[in-house]
Computed example of a mutant assay.
Amino acid sequence: MDHFESWKDLLNPQFYIDNGGFWLILFIIFAETGLFVGFFLPGDSLLFVSGIFAVNIISETFTSTGSDFLDTAILATCVSVAAIIGNEVGYFFGLKTGPILYEKKDSFLFKKKYLFKAHDFFEEHGNVAVIMARFLPIVRTFIPIVAGIVKMDKKKFFVDNVIGAFLWSFILIFAGHYLNELFKNQFGIDLKAHLEIIILIIVLVTTLPIIIKFFTGKKEIKS
């Protein structure tokens, strides 16, 4: 077990896998949307890297089914459930707190600007924003809260929540598992030995839409 050395460990998905495994992964996924302070947690990269270690994670927590596919599917399903519960908690929080959050002062764990960005995203994309937001860091933390604040229909939110959670979890976890298998079999490259580069690439890819939106938004304001 690795010991916590610095705040950088909190951004490293392997830290959670090594120190908490299956149950900590589920909590992190829940916290990223269920607790608005979880916006800094490594959602996308955690799922991808978890996919690489899926068989080991299931074997150490329960017992391997003997099938890589089933072990990976079990992990992805459990993560989906954690993500769904997280979003429902976020929705309920937004429903009950309402405008109070907009009056809350910024702190280390709460940035009002993220709430406004999530609101703009929701206004632009409508109900489908709940599904799309799953693939966008920070935005996915605040979208369920915004959905609750604007009193989005509970049944519609739940359906979109389930669809988004399963798409996000299965795509990233299975991508991690089978891309690792592909690289090992075809190129002799074990992605486990290159996790830092992989995490960096995932962070860049997932944050690129937000960066583009930020700068294009500024140009629109100037014009």
Rank of each mutant, 00 (worst) to 15 (best):
F174D: 03
K105P: 07
I25T: 08
I131V: 15
S107K: 15
I145T: 15
E88G: 02
G164I: 06
I145F: 05
F170S: 01
G86W: 02
I221H: 13
T141E: 02
T77A: 13
E124G: 06
N180C: 05
N185Y: 02
I85C: 03
G20Q: 04
K113H: 15
N12C: 00
I25A: 08
L10K: 02
I163C: 03
I189V: 15
T77I: 09
I100P: 07
K155R: 12
F30W: 06
F142L: 00
H119I: 13
S80G: 08
F15Y: 14
L101K: 09
T216S: 15
L172N: 00
G188F: 06
S6N: 05
L136F: 05
P144I: 09
L115V: 14
A54L: 11
L47D: 13
I58H: 02
D18Y: 05
T65F: 09
E220H: 12
F30D: 01
N19F: 02
F22H: 03
L115D: 05
I210L: 14
L208T: 09
N19Q: 01
L95H: 12
F53H: 09
I221A: 14
F170H: 08
I85L: 08
K112N: 14
F183L: 04
Y102E: 14
F69H: 01
I198C: 09
I145Y: 00
F122R: 10
Q186C: 01
